[in-house]
Nucleic acid binder design. Sequence first.
DNA 1: CTAGGGTTAG
Length: 317
Amino acid sequence: MRPGSRFLSVVRTLTILAPPKGKTFASCCDPNLQLGVYYKNERINELIKGRRIQDAQNLFDQMSARDSITYNLLISGHGRYGNPKQALYLYKEMVSQGIKETGPTFSSVITVCGNEGFYAEGVQVHCRVISLGFGLNLFVGSSLVNLYLRMGLVDVAWKLFDQLPQRNLAVWNLMLNGFLELGKLEELFVLHGQMRWEGVEPNGLSFCYLIRACCNGRFLDQGKQLHCHVIKVGWVEFNDFVANALVDFYSACGIFIDARKAFLLIPVEDVISWNSIISVYAENDLLFDAIELFSRMHFWDKKTFHSFLFGALGLIQ
DNA sequence: CTAGGGTTAG
């Protein structure tokens, strides 16, 4: 037997206990305990993906040791599936137990704060972001941009956005959406100009926001330009949302003919486009056409709200 | 093993 071979066999048995890929022994003081956490985290992840958030919470409650990933999974799960308060509670518990936040923690928590109106809490978490040095993280930064836009603090959002070391389409779209919701249409078009200046190509969602801005502001010329561009790039054929936005734009601007043209070009009419075009017919006093379209829609087995039809019937009487 | 952006009107 060669010297050292016994040692090798011991090492081989040890590898059975080897930590999962990407981990080293140095990062686990107690391999067995840590492995337990790892596999339970995986299970929690599966449960949340299957939308079984309560089961995930039960498993979480039974765990004797938890790490930041355990908390991140549950925080984002509760945030996504409608339990924002629980998400914030878990975040508080996590911090008070001395478990350090990571990027995903901040990103989930701040998104919850922004979307559910916990603005004061969101600003507090922003302080933690700064003191722990996560301010330049793209995900964290975009959740902060979203938070301040929802608060209506446009200047702060601009500043954070400008300071981001890199940007992707999601952040640009968050900005566009924020300005649209706040009715800051000028800012929105400034941002669009900046996109073009930096050579960022908008996607279908960006064009939805831009066209809706033209719709709300009745910017006929600008909307037509967008329409041309969108046709050239090919979004109308592939994106129902864009096509619907065009129908709404023309009907808002009172250009009935173009609204109808835009409707006819929609590849697969969904409920929304039917709603839009029926309301356009009704608004233009083409009541019988509206009703005819409504019955055609039933023929295609489309389900919709009946309000437009009732509106049209009311006008006839 | 974890984090982000969606259409209508009423």
